[in-house]
Nucleic acid binder design. Sequence first.
DNA 1: GCCAACGTTGGC
DNA 2: GCCAACGTTGGC
Length: 147
Amino acid sequence: MKSEPNECSIDDLVRLGRVPWTGVRNYQARNFMRDAMQVGDGVLFYHSSCPEPGIAGLARVASAAYPDATQFDAASPYFDPKSRPDAPRWLHVDVDQGRKTRLLPLAEMRQRPELATMGVLKPGSRLSITPVTPDEWQAVQALLATG
DNA sequence: GCCAACGTTGGC
DNA sequence: GCCAACGTTGGC
C-alpha cells in the first residue's frame, strides 16, 4: 500500500496505532481492498512521492472494507459529489500494527529479479494498492532482514 | 519541472 | 461503444 509520507508515514502509523486508509479514488485499488483483503493480512507500507521512495515498513489489515466518509465531506480534498450516501462509491480498510523496517528503496527493488513480478514495479503502474503473492512477501522479508 | 503512462470523462 | 482530450500519478 502506497502512502505519501508527508500525508501518512510509517512513523505516523506506528504513533497512531491504527489508521483508516481513506482517499483511495481508483476502482481497481478499491476493489483490492473490498474483495481481496482480509483482517490479518500483511501489508507492505510503501512511501511514494518523496525523496526516497520504497518500502518503509510493515503493517496489518485491521478491518474489512467500509464506506469512506471523506467522499461525502465537501471540505475534504477527497470529496466526490457524484457519490451518494445510499450507494457509497468509495471504500477503505483500516490498517494497524505498523512496524518500521529499514528502507528498501525502489531502486534496490528493481535490481532484484525475485521482486520483478510485483505489481508496484510493473512499468507505468500507478495503482496505490497492489496485491503481493506469498513468494513476493517472503522475498521482501528476506531483503529487509539483510542490511 | 518534466514527462510517460494510464484512468476518466464526455461528445458523438 | 469509440476515442480524443484531459487530469493524475509518481519517478526522476
